[in-house]
Design a protein around this nucleic acid. Structure first.
Length: 564
RNA sequence: CGGGGCGUGGCUCAGCCUGGUAGAGCGCCUGGUUCGGGACCAGGAGGCCGGAGGUUCGAAUCCUCUCGCCCCGACCA
């Protein structure tokens, strides 16, 4: 294509509203324009890149035997009411009414519709397994869209759904996706990590997220050697307590601690490190109070807590609730003498003795509190992994990294098939429940992640597989007939090799053309200039900023090799 | 939803405090000179200052309300 005829509105300055790099560059390079908060128009370059990403996704999905469909984005309320998600999704679901006052929504995923199709049509075990997928626009009424294309209200997603007869079949479908996802992200040129993820309180035995390290991300993952998990789910050995527990059989002993409330203040006042204290957190799990205990220097993981409680909704208790339940204010709370409230402690407190806790009396703490002896307790993993923790597998310190989630694969189990009555007839004529999995990929997020991961002060650096064009041919002076002809010749040679080539035939100064080509991230540039007299042109690699002189006749073929 | 910031030509921003109906750079158009890293000269087009109401002789500027966008937090199948 000829640049002079294209709409590629590059910007010299960064639009004020863009904060994260991928957002700034997508705007500057003329890929996207914003229509409203979290709603973007994908212009020519973005669309080309997204189509290439989709093509890779399709090839790999098709290769595993998945079948592509296209389902409605506009859904009747009924199917969402059947699955229960009409209520569960709350405000995140875009809802609307039609002219007859019927409730509708814009789908944020397609479990309901897929299950509706499956239960109407799948009748025999012989028809299983099935894997169905689609690439389409999803809608979510995000409370706070942000970070350019990373958290938006309308976005493209590849979602697939597997239907199997038994758990082993689901495992196989899950594994197929796992492998396909690795190939997809590798082909897209991304450095990614697959991590264990929290599968939520409602069903689902296993889930894996695919993450790309980036400061623009919103998720944290814990990684070390072969271990990788979302921070919400990660486990690791805590650093040992800073001081040994006092030896001996003691009874809890009140100590006056006026105005001493926080862990740090208690540590200072009693000259005992935070790790010798029990942090008492009053939580409401589905509106029932629970006292959660973690080591003083540890943090409660709300995800783990919710999961242990099997609660749909958890929140910290309000000050007045705490007062009513404990007779004391936060800062003096503890587990001793607590009645009719479930007490659950993090595993790091198991085996500890003679620790410090609040006395449930304002301005008092207790010394020598031992879990199990001084109060009944159950133990569970409640703690969020922290920097300094060591890996359960290799013993080395774990790293915590900020990441962008680009894919998530999920064993759903029977949640939707049970809720919506999806069964098939088994070999013996009886009804068999169908077990499902769901698997998502954020299409735009792949593009964003690629940009976040690979850019420099001049702009985007895209891998050839997902760049809108693989090569740009730039005659330094398009008014020079010899240069113009040579550029055209190379351009045509690229095309005949099947390369996506762009001919920069604009009547611009060379600096402008170089800057633009670099900004929009085209991996290779062939510059036709002075050396044409010797039959040579320059092949410039965007990523390495290196340049080599090549023969006019060989330029296209060289680029072809580099793109493979 | 809580906290903060910002809305002035296409983009970046000044002007607002101390009211007198708008300015710069870039971009755009025309002509010319240029042509290996976002050229130069000359000429030109383009905004009623997010919106509504109020105060005032007079409002981009002061007051009230409202809409939108961004950031932090809460939230995030």
């Amino acid at each position: 294509m000829q640049w002079s005829k294209l709409f590629i509105p590059t910007l010299r300055e960064v639009p004020a509203e863009a904060e994260v790099v991928s957002h700034q560059l997508l705007l500057r390079a003329g890929y996207v324009r914003q229509l409203a908060a979290g709603i973007y128009s994908y212009l020519f370059l973005a669309q080309r890149s997204l189509l290439k990403i989709e093509k890779i996704v399709r090839e790999e999905m098709d290769a595993m035997g998945a079948q592509e469909m296209l389902l409605p984005a506009l859904n009747p309320a009924e199917v969402w009411q059947e699955s229960g998600r009409w209520d569960v999704m709350g405000q995140n679901l875009f809802r609307l009414k039609d002219r007859f006052d019927r409730d509708l929504c814009l789908a944020m995923t397609h479990e309901e519709v897929m299950t509706t199709i499956a239960r109407g049509e799948l009748r025999s075990y012989k028809q299983l397994p099935q894997i169905w997928y689609q690439i389409q626009t999803k809608f979510r009424d995000e409370p706070r869209p942000k970070s350019g294309l990373l958290r938006v209200r309308q976005f493209l997603m590849k979602d697939s759904y597997s239907f199997d007869l038994e758990p082993a079949g689901l495992d196989a479908s899950f594994d197929k996706h796992y492998e396909a996802y690795k190939r997809i992200f590798t082909r897209c040129g991304l450095e990614f990590v697959a991590v264990e993820a929290d599968s939520g309180a409602m069903g689902g035995s296993q889930s894996t997220e695919f993450m790309v390290a980036s400061d623009a991300g919103e998720d944290f993952v814990v990684v070390c050697g072969s271990y990788a998990a979302n921070l919400e789910k990660a486990v690791a050995h805590p650093v040992p307590p800073a001081a040994p527990d006092p030896d001996g059989e003691f009874e809890p002993e009140p100590v006056h601690t006026p105005g001493v409330k926080t862990i740090a203040e208690v540590a200072d006042f009693l000259k005992l490190p935070a790790s010798s204290q029990m942090k008492s957190l009053v939580m409401m799990a589905d509106d029932k109070p629970v006292l959660a205990l973690v080591r003083g220097d540890h943090q409660l993981s709300e995800t783990k807590f919710a999961s242990v409680m099997k609660a749909r909704e958890i929140r910290p208790a309000l000050p007045h609730e705490i007062r009513e339940l404990f007779g004391a204010d936060p800062g003096s709370l503890g587990p001793v003498g607590v009645k009719n409230i479930r007490v659950i402690a993090d595993k790091a407190l198991e085996g500890r003795r003679n620790m410090v806790a609040g006395a449930n009396r304002d301005d008092y703490h207790l010394l020598h509190v031992t879990p199990g002896k001084d109060f009944p307790v159950e133990f569970a993993d409640l703690r969020q992994v922290a920097i300094g923790d060591t890996c359960m597998e290799c013993g080395l310190p774990v790293a915590i990294r900020k990441t962008i989630e680009i894919g998530h694969i999920f064993k759903l189990g029977y949640k939707y098939s049970d809720a919506m009555g999806l069964r098939v007839q088994g070999p013996d004529g009886s009804d068999v429940r169908v077990i499902m999995g769901s698997y998502g990929i954020g299409i735009e997020r792949i593009l964003c992640a690629a940009i976040e991961q690979s850019h420099d002060s001049n702009g985007i650096i895209l891998p050839p597989a997902i760049a809108p064009f693989q090569v740009v041919i730039t005659p330094v002076n398009n008014g020079d007939e010899a240069q113009k002809q040579a550029a055209l010749q190379i351009y045509q040679a690229c095309q005949s090799l099947g390369l996506d080539a762009l001919l920069d035939d604009r009547d611009e100064r060379p600096g402008v053309k170089f800057k633009d080509a670099e900004l929009i991230g085209i991996p290779f540039r062939i510059t036709v200039g002075k050396k044409l007299a010797q039959g040579m042109v320059e092949l410039v690699t965007r990523k390495s900023k290196t340049s080599e002189d090549v023969l006019v006749a060989e330029a296209a073929e060289l680029v072809g090799k580099l793109c493979r």
